[in-house]
Simulated scan of single mutants.
Amino acid sequence: MSARWIEVADGVHVRRYEELDLSLGLVVGDDACLVVDTGGDEVQGAEWASAVRRVTPLPWTVVLTHSHFDHSFGTQAFLPCPVLAHPNCVDELVIESAEEKDKWSAYYTDQKRPEIAAAIRATRIVLPNTLVSERTTVDLGGRIVEIEQFGLGHTDNDLVLRVPDADVVFAGDLVENGAPPSFPGSFPASWPTALAGLLTLTGPDTVVVPGHGEPVDAAFVDRQRADIAAVVELAAAFVAGSVTLEDVLRDSPFPAEATRRAIGRLTGRNRSGR
């Protein structure tokens, strides 16, 4: 399993996995550490837990930035411990985890990677045991981590973590680097507002850790916010009949496939972005 560490600030680490270009986080305090997301299956979760233990022996708390398999299916390896998540994350894991297992095990089977497919199928889903529905903090000893939620965006259960003394923000998949935002199941109409909320936590020197890709800065996040907002505007013009689908695909800041997925979310039956 190809992975490497990046230390983005003193005691704030990112584990970068080649698979899915995934970024997982570790924040170390004086008395405890915080693990940000757990990977896509129990095998990856165990590797990730072992990597954390090579950095620190301190007791850990897990925070899930959202419910998608690649961020939440590896939790079993960290138990017993507090597992924090938004209440809707629990709902999604209960309702969607079996379908996610089928979908992604089939994907890796098609990719001729049966070992990952088998690991996903065998994964035991762990439900978070501590719910975060409003701003909260975790005290790691000499270091506070703030956890916030800024509304509907990549999912209905995105959490954002800020390490104030290190000027680092973990954004989950509200921010993507190296690929377009992932729109299936998302809420494009309100996603720019969620990113605007995230930007209130940043300054010119803030390191923002996306769910996938290398760390970025606030300017990158603001550009992504503007790009998603542009797609929302194009979709509204398409619904109004003032532009064609070809116009939208031509003018979108994202590739055609991502744009079509965003439009599909924005022009559904209730036109709410759900």
Rank of each mutant, 00 (worst) to 15 (best):
139 D>C: 11
55 V>M: 10
30 D>P: 10
153 G>H: 02
41 D>Q: 05
149 Q>T: 11
29 G>M: 13
150 F>R: 02
127 L>F: 13
41 D>A: 01
127 L>R: 08
96 E>F: 11
83 V>Y: 01
23 S>L: 06
71 H>A: 09
60 W>L: 11
32 A>K: 08
147 I>D: 03
57 P>T: 12
57 P>K: 03
33 C>L: 15
82 P>K: 01
82 P>A: 10
88 N>M: 09
121 R>C: 08
52 V>W: 05
126 V>Q: 00
153 G>N: 01
23 S>A: 15
149 Q>M: 03
137 T>M: 14
125 I>D: 03
77 A>S: 14
13 H>L: 15
69 F>G: 09
121 R>V: 06
45 G>P: 04
59 P>T: 12
108 Y>V: 03
18 E>Y: 12
62 V>A: 04
153 G>D: 05
137 T>F: 15
112 K>F: 12
95 I>W: 00
120 I>E: 09
85 A>T: 00
78 F>A: 01
72 S>M: 02
111 Q>S: 00
33 C>Y: 04
133 S>G: 13
100 E>F: 10
114 P>T: 15
51 A>P: 11
102 D>E: 15
103 K>Y: 13
122 A>G: 07
154 H>Q: 06
98 A>L: 09
130 T>A: 15
67 S>M: 01
54 R>P: 04
61 T>H: 09
73 F>Q: 12
40 G>Y: 14
28 V>T: 15
16 R>T: 12
64 L>E: 00
18 E>M: 08
68 H>F: 04
12 V>H: 11
41 D>K: 02
110 D>N: 11
98 A>K: 05
15 R>S: 11
34 L>P: 14
93 L>I: 00
108 Y>K: 03
29 G>A: 09
91 D>G: 03
23 S>T: 06
121 R>W: 06
32 A>P: 03
119 A>V: 13
24 L>M: 00
61 T>I: 10
147 I>W: 01
54 R>L: 12
22 L>K: 02
153 G>S: 02
62 V>T: 00
61 T>K: 02
65 T>W: 05
133 S>W: 03
113 R>C: 06
21 D>Q: 09
55 V>N: 10
79 L>P: 07
71 H>R: 14
32 A>W: 08
131 L>D: 03
50 S>I: 10
86 H>L: 05
132 V>H: 08
45 G>V: 11
45 G>W: 14
28 V>P: 14
146 E>A: 09
144 I>R: 13
55 V>E: 11
117 A>M: 03
89 C>I: 02
92 E>H: 13
119 A>N: 13
83 V>N: 01
62 V>W: 00
117 A>G: 02
22 L>P: 01
34 L>W: 12
126 V>I: 05
130 T>H: 12
134 E>M: 04
65 T>P: 05
